[in-house]
Design a protein around this nucleic acid. Structure first.
Length: 799
DNA sequence: TTAGGGTTAG
């Protein structure tokens, strides 16, 4: 081993660590043993020995390690272990040593530590300053500066301290050093990741003014930033300045992400023709295009690109296929997803766990958890490797089915395969326990995960407090709430909301209110949760009272919950007001919500408000469904506003909404009853009604929709009223032949006509049949039979 | 260099 004064001193240092013997360094160890020194001695040590060491010794010693950077590093480390913080000059020296040896990674970690150390006693800018001043040789100086500023930028970026990173760039520029382009690129890339797009574009402009030599990666990054902003034109312009394939690939991705996949395809075609795009690059952009088409829901186009990839000799691309499957799954189009899966399996593609997880997830979203589990087992039996994501979907499915214990067994299976559960796995299972009200098990699982080295995150705790609150454990909720804060996980609005709503769910409204009041910062969302909570515990009027004071847009679920609670309580005016407030704040109510309100208004014969709501729906692009149309048509029929009913009928057909048996029956009934005397009086109204009735009937039959009991009854009734009893009886038989059971109304229509016309025998036969079928005592009809018989006799006697 | 999973429901 070479002799060096540092080595000597370091060995002394080691000695002093064992026993505080006399040495220039003993003060260092003494610092760690305050019991050995009085306060005044301690101060002396601090001021005298250490400052002496710093001034005269440290610098010289460090300088002497320039041939052995590891020694320098270890020296620094040991100093720190003894509580000595080296000054700016010491660091400058160390940086120079590491730079001259090209030990970039070591330099990086030294600087990260330096930045994190808030008690370093000098600013990082000072360090750059000192390095800039002290290096005499110009070439060397700028090399060191570039290297250290680059490393500092990377260090700051790694810690998410973007402003500081940018400061470093400009500081080194002030020292006549052109910033390291790699560091700039690194910074800009990270800025994009953190969504700080504007900063990237601004920074690029400033750096260009400062004379930075941007390379093709820089341009590609800024192109990416512009695309993220949606500024495709700006990106295209920039591309002209530095037209590298790399930047073009970024631009193509930008086009695809921004819904301009068609344009990307054209561009790719041109590049292929110019022979600048081939091989892996081509494969990559094809993948982007498939993903783009999937996002735009142009599935045929996406699938055809996959074919084109095959034709180009890339084989069947599993990434592209997974994009297609995932899109089908996300739009809950399971048949297409499975169909496509079959197709690619037939072509020999090996399915991977990503595709599996998409499919499993789709089953779960469609409320088919059992099928998801079946599929899970199927894929597992096919010996496809299933990772923790797939297992997680299975955990979730079992949890939702209330079979959390089985999920725990499955967790063990996963662990046995050597897959370590992560925070999401644990969170899912904790949710499963909470759903079953097994909060103790949920808490045990928290302990287990911590024991396994996985820390619960904000979502885990949100799930947990939600479960505790819903199960009425308000004290535990508050305990966990404090624990979160102590662990540095700041509860967010969701935390507060699930607690408020959960406690209300457990009918602990007072506790929920107390919790709400205890919040230092009450956000609008919290008040909205209280509205929901009140609804949850049946206090919808109280909820409404609070709701009207919240004069800003709320979550959609708040309106929905309040609206339906009010509807159930029969407070239609208030429900209507909720709906109006939704429109006012441009929160789109769902079809069913409007439909329900329209239905309620119609039942009150309030066609004016119903129509207004209906029109608003249409204006805002919500197409009313079949039921809403039918109930409106029915109401207008009832109110004898036939024209309005007819125009709605036409309107729905034009929109492609097919009338069903109810719609046709409602209209038919109305038209058939247009003749006020129920006889063929030849009145104009009666004629019109007859004509329209037969039109509707023709359309009805042509639609292929089978008549139901009610529609048969409407027709029978009409024949009866026109005294066409044979036709009526024929319809009655046809109804039975088609497998329908006539109900009491159908029987009554025919029976009463028979009586009226004196067909006592036929009437009695039907009465007997009816009473047998529906268990009605015949006495019910005795009076009617007698009356009818009397009438018939009189008729026969010519009275 | 690409992907897929966990928190506010009725």
């Amino acid at each position: 081993m070479r002799f060096s004064p540092t080595f000597f001193l370091l060995s002394q240092l080691r000695l002093t660590r064992r026993a505080a013997t006399s040495s220039r360094f003993y003060a260092v160890s003494a610092l760690n043993n305050p019991n050995n020194l009085s306060d005044s001695e301690q101060q002396q040590v601090n001021h005298l020995n250490l400052s002496k060491l710093t001034e005269y010794g440290l610098q010289r010693l460090l300088n002497s390690t320039r041939d052995d950077p590891n020694l320098a590093l270890s020296f620094l480390r040991q100093l720190k272990e003894h509580g000595v913080s080296p000054n700016v000059n010491a660091y400058a020296t160390l940086v120079r040593i590491l730079t001259s040896w090209g030990l970039d990674r070591k330099l990086d970690s030294v600087l990260v530590e330096l930045i994190k150390n808030e008690e370093r006693g000098f600013s990082v800018m000072d360090l750059i300053e000192v390095i800039g001043e002290e290096e005499a040789e110009e070439d060397k100086r700028s090399l060191v500066l570039i290297r250290v500023s680059g490393a500092l930028v990377k260090a700051y970026v790694g810690l998410g301290m973007f402003d500081e990173a940018i400061d470093v760039l400009f500081q080194s520029k002030r020292l006549d050093c052109v910033p390291d382009i790699k560091a700039c690129n690194f910074l800009m890339n990270r800025l994009i990741e953190f969504g700080k797009i504007g900063m990237v574009v601004a920074l690029f402009k400033q750096l260009k003014q400062l004379g930075l030599c941007a390379n093709e990666y820089t341009y590609a990054i800024v192109v990416k930033a512009l695309c993220r902003k949606g500024d495709l034109e700006g990106a295209a312009m920039l591309l002209l300045e530095s037209p590298s394939v790399f930047a073009y690939k970024t631009f193509i991705d930008g086009l695809c992400v921004n819904g301009e996949t068609e344009k990307a395809v054209v561009l790719i075609g041109e590049m292929i023709d110019m022979n600048v795009l081939a091989g892996d690059d081509l494969r990559t952009v094809f993948g982007m295009v498939v993903r783009g088409f999937c996002n735009e829901m142009k599935m045929e186009a996406a699938e055809s690109v996959i074919l084109e990839m095959e034709n180009n000799g890339f084989g069947l691309d599993v990434y592209a296929c997974s994009a297609v499957i995932d899109r089908y799954c996300k739009s809950m189009n399971l048949p297409e997803a499975l169909g496509f899966l079959d197709k690619i399996l037939g072509k020999g593609l090996k399915v991977n766990c990503v595709i599996v997880s998409s499919i499993l997830q789709c089953y779960c979203k469609m409320d088919m958890c059992l099928e998801a589990l079946e599929k899970f087992n199927e894929f597992r039996d096919m010996n496809i490797f299933l990772d923790r994501v797939c297992y997680n979907v299975a955990f979730d499915a079992l949890s939702k089915l209330g079979r959390v214990e089985e999920a725990i067994e499955l967790l063990q299976e996963m662990k046995d395969k050597g897959i370590v559960p992560d925070v999401i796995n644990y969170t899912t299972l904790i949710d499963g326990y909470c759903l079953q009200g097994k909060v103790v098990d949920a808490l045990d699982l928290i302990d287990e995960m911590i024991g396994n080295g996985t820390s619960p995150d904000l979502i885990t705790y949100n799930v947990l407090v939600s479960g505790l609150a819903r199960n009425g454990h308000e004290e535990a909720v508050l305990e966990i709430y404090e624990r979160m804060k102590a662990e540095g996980l700041k509860p967010n609005a969701v935390t507060d909301n699930v607690i408020i709503e959960g406690l209300c769910f457990a009918r602990k409204v007072k506790e929920a209110e107390d919790f709400f009041m205890s919040l230092e910062q009450k956000c609008p969302e919290n008040k909205a949760s209280l509205v929901k909570g009140y609804c949850e515990s049946g206090l919808s009027k109280k909820a409404y009272k609070l709701f009207v004071t919240l004069e800003y847009p709320l979550r959609k679920s708040v309106y929905i919950k309040l609206f339906f609670s009010l509807c159930i309580e029969g407070c239609l005016d208030k429900a209507h007001a909720v709906l109006k407030r939704m429109w006012a704040y441009r929160v789109k109510p769902g079809r069913s919500m409007c439909g329900k309100m329209i239905g309620a208004l119609c039942r009150l014969n309030n066609a004016i408000d119903a129509q207004q709501l209906f029109d608003t729906m249409v204006e805002r692009g919500l197409i009313p469904d079949l039921f809403t149309y039918t109930i409106m048509i029915h109401t207008y029929c009832r109110l004898n506003e036939l024209q309005k009913a007819e125009s709605l009928f036409e309107d729905m057909k034009q929109r492609g909404i097919k009338p069903d048996v109810v719609t046709y029956t409602v209209l038919l009934d109305r038209y058939l009853n247009l003749d006020p005397e129920h006889h063929e009086t030849g009145s104009v109204q009666g004629e019109v009604g007859k004509r329209k009735a037969s039109e509707v009937l023709r359309e009805f039959s042509a639609s292929g929709i089978r008549l139901d009991v009610i529609s048969y009854t409407v027709l029978i009734d009409r024949q009866c009223k026109m005294d066409k009893l044979e036709q009526a009886a024929e319809l009655f038989d046809r109804m039975i032949d088609s497998g329908l059971e006539p109900d009491i109304v159908a029987y009554t229509a025919l029976i009463s006509s028979y009586f009226r016309k004196g067909y006592i025998d036929k009437a009695v036969t039907l009465v007997t049949e009816l009473s047998k079928k529906y268990n009605i005592p015949t006495e019910h009809f005795e009076a009617a039979v007698k009356r009818a018989a009397l009438k018939a006799k009189r008729f026969q006697n010519g009275e």
